[in-house]
Design a protein around this nucleic acid. Structure first.
Lengths: 192, 192
DNA sequence: TCAGGTTGTAATCGGATGATTACCTAGACC
DNA sequence: GGTCTAGGTAATCATCCGATTACAACCTGA
């Protein structure tokens, strides 16, 4: 298999594992096994574990921004932009690990290198909302807040425990609303 | 020094370090140095690093809930409960590391033991808002969302980089609003 | 066919780190 | 004074993990 294609496979696998366990919590061997190759090959293709994480982070951000820009361009549906971008964000659960990996990066602000990239990435999203989507300060605040709560609940693995605690179910419904079923389909108890 | 008092010192120090670097990213030796004692003593007082983290997590949650209940009882000010609890939450920045440690726990849902405690803790907060504060579903959602965004920006260390990027400053002002100066005082570039 | 590049692995190394052990010191109590 | 307990450390162990090395298999073109 050509190296470029192998890299994509590894980035996919790494997005999942890093999202699960965070930067320090995942080993290059876990990523290698998830990608079906050997551990030394992972580090040879990316240099270091840190560079791999930064590549994964960059890819996750691009995935999100590309989806946002597509939603912005397709303004057919008629209902508010904030709603449309919100749904676009939620729909990203199908790109497994993107939300959770981004959040793992965002909580790594204390790390010098990862922190710089994470802050820059967050600001990219901010600028998109303000400058391209035309959001007001309040709209930006509300949108980011909902996005962060959504991501935290995913990282908490609350969807996976759905049905085991009535309060957990109530919280899920309060936050995810109409999208609850869709989230449970991808991240629920039975999901891979 | 009596062991009970020493434990509190260690829990204080650990709250800061865990908040900075996450569970897997911090070493027991870093905590020991922050507390001014030797590494073996840290693990002897708490058994394992995981038990120490769970103690830190529990303590951070109690700190928050105690502050919330105090704000709930003191209903003198006359303006809305949501606002008052929001300010209480923001004011917790003075208890250094509480927000960031909680968020570090919340993104560790993939870890079996820590995940269970983190989910239980989040649900404790949810129940407080719903049952004690009497919030509606929408109020709960908005409150938690603002809280998570606030915590993420702290973990990103955006306050520490204030003044280095106009967009970062704009984002800070959009999210923190009137509390911006207070946050910068505790978490800003010049803070410890 | 054979030289060279590409894809990939097995073996291993060295440093970091959580945990354990063995020990030390200072008071408290008799 | 002697012993017992509590508070604390130095030294060390065992394991994990990222990285390196050396090498194997397989194309591909001259």
């Amino acid at each position: 298999m050509p190296a470029a294609q192998r890299r994509e496979l590894i980035l996919d696998a790494a997005t999942g594992v890093f999202g699960d366990r965070g930067y320090h919590g995942t080993t290059t061997d876990q990523i290698a096994k998830a990608a079906g190759i050997s551990q030394p090959y992972v580090v040879r293709l990316f240099g270091t574990k840190e560079k791999l994480f930064l590549d994964v982070l960059d890819r996750a951000l691009q995935t999100m921004l590309v989806a946002f820009r597509a939603a912005l361009a397709d303004d057919g549906s008629g209902y508010p932009l904030q709603k449309r971008l919100g749904e676009t964000f939620v729909d990203l659960v199908s790109s497994k690990g993107v939300h959770r990996t981004l959040l793992q990066a965002f909580v790594s602000g204390g790390d010098a290198e990862i922190g710089r990239f994470a802050r820059a990435g967050f600001l990219d999203v901010f600028r998109f909302l303000r400058d391209e989507a035309g959001f007001t300060d309040v709209e930006v605040d509300e949108f980011l807040a909902q996005g962060m709560l959504f991501s935290v609940l995913l990282s908490l693995e609350l969807p996976r425990t759905f049905g085991t605690d009535p309060d957990g179910d109530a919280l899920m419904r309060a936050v995810f609303g109409a999208k609850c079923a869709m989230v449970l389909d991808v991240m629920g108890p039975g999901a891979s």
